[in-house]
Write a protein that binds this DNA or RNA. Sequence first.
DNA 1: TATTGTTATACTCTATAACTATA
DNA 2: TATAGTTATAGAGTATAACAATA
Lengths: 152, 152
Amino acid sequence: MADDTKKTDPSVDFGILNSLMGYRLRRAQMNFFSKFSDLCSDLGISPGLFAIIAIVERNPGLTQTAVAQALGNDRSAMVAAVDKLEQMDIIERRPAKNDRRSYALFMTKHGQTFFKTLSTRVMEHEQSMAARLKDDKELDWLLKTLDILSKN
Amino acid sequence: MADDTKKTDPSVDFGILNSLMGYRLRRAQMNFFSKFSDLCSDLGISPGLFAIIAIVERNPGLTQTAVAQALGNDRSAMVAAVDKLEQMDIIERRPAKNDRRSYALFMTKHGQTFFKTLSTRVMEHEQSMAARLKDDKELDWLLKTLDILSKN
DNA sequence: TATTGTTATACTCTATAACTATA
DNA sequence: TATAGTTATAGAGTATAACAATA
């Protein structure tokens, strides 16, 4: 919602939370997600759907399960997501060539242009957030550090 | 679940996702949360409950609404959370002195020691994650940067 | 009128198990 | 026997609206 009216009370002592990467990651991520909603909810796209589109766009022909594994989702969650993206004419299922159990996922023509619109909005927001950092070097460092912290 | 068996396929091209702070923040945060569950689910504590305890421990006497505002939660979500923490004998509601509508929240005796156990576990994990960084300077920089990115 | 705690509600995410058709 | 897609389901988490008691 990106709501300025309810501020965090500065007189509250956050104690240990202040020193926890886990807590700060959560706060930062919530901020990104709520802004993402502000920017893209009119298009019916959530962060999770955006990630699926981004993977399919760069890796046409992947199966649902392969996309789920790449994103760390469960197979079962893909069904409703791909159903929706298919109804929106963004992605299409095609029968896989070598395996009649699985579908290969591809972008539709409309999906291609839709993804460009979406990417532009998302990148604009990213750049406005990146402007809070010192320089591109700091951004690279942040991305690298977040990647290191993403591995278990 | 911190499961090593299902790896992210390295042959998948993540495209724009790789350059997005929002996506990397999500991946890093998911990793912290799943490890938090591994460490603390036997004690019945989620990250959200831990945050509430941490605030009450450092700010005894805050009302439910004040804690909710500090953490960015909705008032209504506090009810079940505080109910649970009260049943676990960690936090107690006391009638507020000046306002008969509200409760003041305090740690119980058991809650004090419980929180120490909890904090030890969480800090151990934090330190093992911080060990992936170069030094304490880098950790400070990360915490500061995440704070900057948390503001809307 | 406004606010606190509460309830009810609903919607999204996520996780699990089981089914079917294929492999 | 194992896997892909699917379905059903259940549990979190989150957000909104409304109500009673109190300010």
